[in-house]
């Protein structure tokens, strides 16, 4: 399996997109840390961009990569290799190289401008988000053979998680404003990995003071190491479930 991952890596590094992605993140982080003044402010501005661009780039890149690797996978499938292994290698290859780009692009400026536990959470969040959205991308890719359709589904997924979902939840909150909604909000944010990541980071910044009673509720849950563990565990579920189901579809489909 390691061998296959190695070739997936080769393939990804050869096309310059991941390199460009790293540079983009580097420039962005340096810029925001320089502009922000305090590292906390830099992290706050970064958070917005991370939660928007990381899912987008992860899902689009992974989907196109999957379709472009069809030949590669076909070649390997005729070899005495388990299909699940091929699939996992592709997944790990893509997710790890994107995460690596992210860690390099955001982590290095963070180290230079002041590492903090919040920064670590932002990094962890970014890595989890990458793994989650690559898994979602693979799910979109195995659902349909048509590349255009696959990318379409991937973009819709991104659109849903990064944008629409929050809109829907805000609408629900607005519609049911007369009821106590704290726990419901908690549940609904857990159902979107992007929100989950955003809140983990926000609660560790002092803007959490703006979040009033609901924020205090969140903090009582997510404030402890146990709660943070739970949140990241939940994000892990968000990566594993689409990965496992797409892996199952992939090993059962005809090539």
């Amino acid at each position: 399996m390691n061998k296959i991952i190695k070739y997936v890596f080769y393939d990804i590094i050869r096309n310059k997109i991941v390199l460009a992605y790293t540079l983009f993140l580097l420039l962005l982080s340096f810029g925001l840390f320089n502009l922000g003044g305090s590292p906390d402010k830099g992290i706050l501005s970064l958070l917005n961009l991370v939660l928007l661009t990381v899912p987008l780039i992860s899902i689009v890149f992974a989907t196109t990569h999957f379709y472009n690797s069809y030949e590669f996978m076909e070649l390997l499938v005729a070899q005495p290799i388990n299909r699940k292994k091929i699939f996992m290698s592709e997944y790990l290859g893509v997710a790890c190289s994107l995460s690596g780009a992210f860690i390099l692009g955001v982590g290095v400026p963070m180290l230079i401008f002041g590492a903090s536990i919040t920064g670590l959470y932002l990094l962890l969040t970014g890595v989890f988000i990458t793994f989650i959205f690559v898994a979602l991308a693979f799910l979109a890719s195995v659902i349909t053979r048509d590349k255009a359709k696959g990318i379409g589904i991937a973009l819709l997924l991104w659109f849903y998680f990064a944008l629409i979902y929050d809109g829907i939840v805000l609408f629900i909150l607005y519609a049911f404003a007369d009821y106590p909604l704290e726990s419901a909000t908690l549940a609904m944010t857990a159902l979107n990995p992007v929100d989950l990541g955003r809140i983990i980071v926000l609660l560790n910044l002092d803007v959490s003071a703006l979040m009033g009673y609901t924020g205090a509720l969140y903090k009582s849950i997510l404030g402890s190491l146990w709660g943070i563990g739970l949140a990241f565990g939940l994000m892990l579920v968000w990566a594993v479930v689409p990965l496992a189901s797409s892996g199952r579809i992939f090993s059962k489909r005809d090539l």
Binding site: D11, F72, L75
Partner: peptide, 21 residues
Amino acid sequence: KHAYRSQIGYMPQIGRYPENM
């Protein structure tokens, strides 16, 4: 199973390979 495939050589009708390799 998959190990048995080491005993089979396959030449597809249209060979498709990673383009940038």
